[in-house]
Design a binder for these strands. Sequence first.
DNA 1: GTCTATAAAAGGATAGAC
DNA 2: GTCTATCCTTTTATAGAC
Lengths: 212, 212
Amino acid sequence: MTTSQSAAKQKVSAKRDDVLRAATATFLEVGYGRTSMDQIAAKAGVSKATVYSHFGSKEALFEAIIRELVHALVQPLAMAPTGETPETTLTAFARRYVALLLAPSSLALHRLLVAEATRNPDLAVASYRTGGERAVGELADYLTQECAKGTIAVADPKLAAEQLFGMLTGHWQVRALMRVEGAPPREALDRYIADAVGAFLRAHAPGATRRA
Amino acid sequence: MTTSQSAAKQKVSAKRDDVLRAATATFLEVGYGRTSMDQIAAKAGVSKATVYSHFGSKEALFEAIIRELVHALVQPLAMAPTGETPETTLTAFARRYVALLLAPSSLALHRLLVAEATRNPDLAVASYRTGGERAVGELADYLTQECAKGTIAVADPKLAAEQLFGMLTGHWQVRALMRVEGAPPREALDRYIADAVGAFLRAHAPGATRRA
DNA sequence: GTCTATAAAAGGATAGAC
DNA sequence: GTCTATCCTTTTATAGAC
């Protein structure tokens, strides 16, 4: 690709990007049904026909945006395996996970996916595969490694990973999704996370008594 | 109230009930935005004007339905304090809780609340107060009692209750809300619940070593 | 590629007869 | 209380000029 072509493409994409930005913001803010193509066009500073020329329909525009958002959002969750203790590693991972999950943009995306899951199941499923499922897999892999080292005792790593995630979010996620309260103060969150990680490690300590 | 008045009221309420049933089914199935008053009227077998005569607006109809649904749904969660062991009591409670949460009607209601939380925050908050918050409170009260007896060791009952709820639902709820998969088979669910309750009891055993 | 103007349809809500 | 008929607004999508 020559420089002129690249420049041309950049220029061509200028209004397209404006549309994408405007549509993303509006969809996240008020949802699919309450977002009109007129609003998007006005916010982007273009005509409605331009919107339709770049994206064939409202649904196609929506799908493109969701896939991009999910992809971008799940990136920071990669698990960096260090030589630290499980408590240190899990706490660091938990903080990233919770911060990600409770971020306003994540919550808005989550609301959108849940709201449109009935109308567009494929999109919701694909989003969960590249989002939640991947996070569980990463944590499960780490638990398997530590289990082999003998630092923790986990019978079913995937199940244990889901349980830890569940404890970490607790009802914060539900409350946030339903707008019951805003983001919790950082110190409350840290205490919450420390409690969950602590409970998890006690439950899966190598020498823990089997009660089940 | 005399018999004739009661009969009259019943007769009067006949079409009103038809509207309520039709509206409830449609809202739960396709959401607020995609439900039209025409659909409701047609499904109920009445004219649109009749719908408006009983409920002043689409929004008022929606609110009445949601509040009724939440109220009815949270009823079975009352905690019956027995003389059983914590494991038995918690397992029984957990089964009721999970069955309730994963029921199709609950999931549809949850989707609706999350989807409309931005447009109607008050409704979502009120629903959480009489739903999730009450469940947490019941479990926390039970944990406090058992803690006094010395059967378990819990520093913060409300926090522990939320963590157990989180473990119980894990990612099942997310998957179900996003329609990633249907209801899990009963035996898988029972195993999932047993694991969560087991982990909880190990983490909060009276003599457990403090690691945090 | 981008705009203006418009088609075509659907939705919330109400007036007035019975 | 209930119905028919209608108003008015909004919305998706496109035709045609530049």
